[in-house]
Design a protein around this nucleic acid. Sequence first.
DNA 1: TCACTCCTCAAGTAATGTCTTGAATATAGA
DNA 2: TCTATATTCAAGACATTACTTGAGGAGTGA
Lengths: 222, 222
Amino acid sequence: MGDRQVKDQLFDAFGEVAKALGNGRRAELIDVLAQGERHVDELSGEIGHSVANTSFHLRALANAGLVTTRRDGTRIYYRLASTRVSDLWAALRDVAAAHHEQIDELAVAYLGDRTRLEQIGRAELAERIAAGDVVVVDVRPAAEHAAGHIAGARSIPIDELAAKVKDLPAGVEIVAYCRGPYCVFADDAVRLLLRRGRTARRLEDGFPEWQRAELPIETAAS
Amino acid sequence: MGDRQVKDQLFDAFGEVAKALGNGRRAELIDVLAQGERHVDELSGEIGHSVANTSFHLRALANAGLVTTRRDGTRIYYRLASTRVSDLWAALRDVAAAHHEQIDELAVAYLGDRTRLEQIGRAELAERIAAGDVVVVDVRPAAEHAAGHIAGARSIPIDELAAKVKDLPAGVEIVAYCRGPYCVFADDAVRLLLRRGRTARRLEDGFPEWQRAELPIETAAS
DNA sequence: TCACTCCTCAAGTAATGTCTTGAATATAGA
DNA sequence: TCTATATTCAAGACATTACTTGAGGAGTGA
């Protein structure tokens, strides 16, 4: 077999990994799985497609080596194969944000105007948590909090936040966080909290970036 | 327009960037362009396809924002849109190498047995260059050396190495480098030099990684 | 202006990817 | 063993992709 042919096969293999990310639904799945493991049924709800189609896409991701599975009873849990996949996903988003003209418009259309929302950096939040003068609220779905969260964060899914604002201590700054730079939950949370007269900011990026920065996290015993 | 629809479009846009890398020929083009800018005719030779097809793939990369162009007379030069793209390409290779079973076999089939070839790290090479007790040979095609190379490196394309070994000073260690971890040129060079009784090692990875590590480089006035 | 080079575009074909629907497996618990 | 639940598989309709061939633009230099 000629060198050309082997080289083509090698680069085809690199291409297959990229191709696995080359679909919007699979990209969404990676974004959700970067939060922690989830089962097929939940994932199908996250991407708004049938379980059959979600399973099909998950298989594509698994074949490319991006995700692995674990069975627990009748459920099958999918998770990212390693933090390298999370790094790859972040690198892809960076390139897209920097060079794909459409992204900015779409991000604004999806996330709304962010210029008036204040963010807090990871390092600063870590200090404030250590000092104990801040309340950290995880506004992602409960399953994602259970799969892993910022140490000390309290789970209040965005849908339940309006009803639970009153349970949050007064006079302390609230920091909300969610999945990452392209997630609306924390933005919505901060807007709601500000309307209710609270002091609130969102964490820059989200949980996966906190985790990749090797800052303290906790996992619920499932 | 519903949130679901906008979110889908946003993630479709991320997917489009990944899809641009999701083809072996385009992956090869990115690997070559990570060395520096090249024109279409040269690139078609690198990937072994027609100029028309190469142009088609380059257009796909440009549409995804991964590469940009510059015209010089009748020639059109393509280059990576930024170092972010190089980072993305490295992240993709890392994931593929770690989780795609086929890669190892293909890499061995393409690169040959590397276990007997010694590598030198970037930091060590930088010190040795500063100390002046090493000869660094760039065995990539001359056009890539011209587009950018390790400061002080001498260009001897792998095809010409056999004829030029005698010009290399005796009694000094030779370090060969090329495009990166999946490039055979430096391996071939080291094997040839060892057969001729020289002391030789290859640099770990290649030029793009040296450049991304912000170690000293030079560019020829074209 | 003309011929030349370099590159892009268009049309056509074969192969591949996406999503739907409905059927098939695998495990848990009665 | 039977039933219910969770997931995967298979078939089919439709859109997209990859490559080939040949024509069309754009810039250069006589």
